Amino acid sequence: MTTEIAKQQGPQMIRCYGQSLEPQDRSKHRAWIGVRVSALLENYWQTKPSEATLEMIYQDWIDELDHFTREEITAACRSWVSANPRRKPNFGDISALVVADRAERRAALPKPPEPEARPLPEDVEARRKAAEEIMAGFVSRHRQGHAQ
């Protein structure tokens, strides 16, 4: 699902936050994501899955959300709960919200100025003719050297 959304929105420039962290900090970040996801999903369980199943569910969430900052994840979780209070999200829903928020923020940034057009030499044809004469002389000298 996330891939389909990304294709619709065009190429994404996703900064891989988790990969930019030192190993110890990344472990803390991933543990924090597990706790955040647990808090998010807690109210949606009718019957809580087994510990082994929960571990697999959380691992999928952690792998998906590892690329995003705590602030982005928290904002997306809050946005989801506000918009969908009765529907349990999956990790693709939260990831898509972060990607959409990033796209909005990127679109709001000022556009870089257009590069200045470089002026063309005044006498393009004269320069082109001179270049052809130089190349013709080079080619004829090069052929003469091989003929000897």
Rank of each mutant, 00 (worst) to 15 (best):
M1A: 09
T3D: 15
E4Y: 11
I5D: 06
K7M: 08
K7P: 07
Q8T: 13
Q9K: 12
M13Q: 13
I14V: 15
I14N: 15
G18W: 08
Q19A: 09
L21M: 15
P23D: 02
Q24F: 08
R26I: 02
S27T: 04
K28S: 10
A31I: 00
W32F: 15
V35I: 13
V37N: 04
L40E: 05
E42D: 15
Y44H: 14
W45Q: 13
Q46M: 07
T47F: 14
T47N: 15
S50T: 09
E51R: 13
L54S: 02
L54C: 04
M56T: 14
M56S: 13
I57K: 08
Y58R: 05
Q59M: 09
D60F: 01
D60Q: 10
W61S: 00
I62A: 01
D63G: 03
D63I: 02
E64C: 06
D66S: 08
F68E: 00
F68T: 00
T69E: 04
T69H: 04
E72G: 07
T74D: 12
A75H: 08
A76I: 04
R78V: 05
R78H: 12
S79C: 07
S82E: 13
A83L: 13
A83V: 08
P85N: 10
K88N: 03
P89V: 01
N90V: 08
F91K: 01
F91I: 00
G92C: 03
D93L: 03
S95I: 01
S95Q: 07
A96T: 10
A96G: 06
A96M: 10
V99I: 14
D101Q: 14
R102C: 00
E104T: 02
E104H: 10
R105L: 09
A108V: 09
L109A: 12
P112C: 00
P112W: 04
P113V: 01
E116N: 10
D123W: 04
A126T: 06
A130N: 10
A131S: 07
E132L: 07
E132I: 03
E133L: 13
I134M: 11
I134C: 04
A136C: 05
F138L: 05
S140C: 10
R141E: 11
A147I: 09
A147F: 07
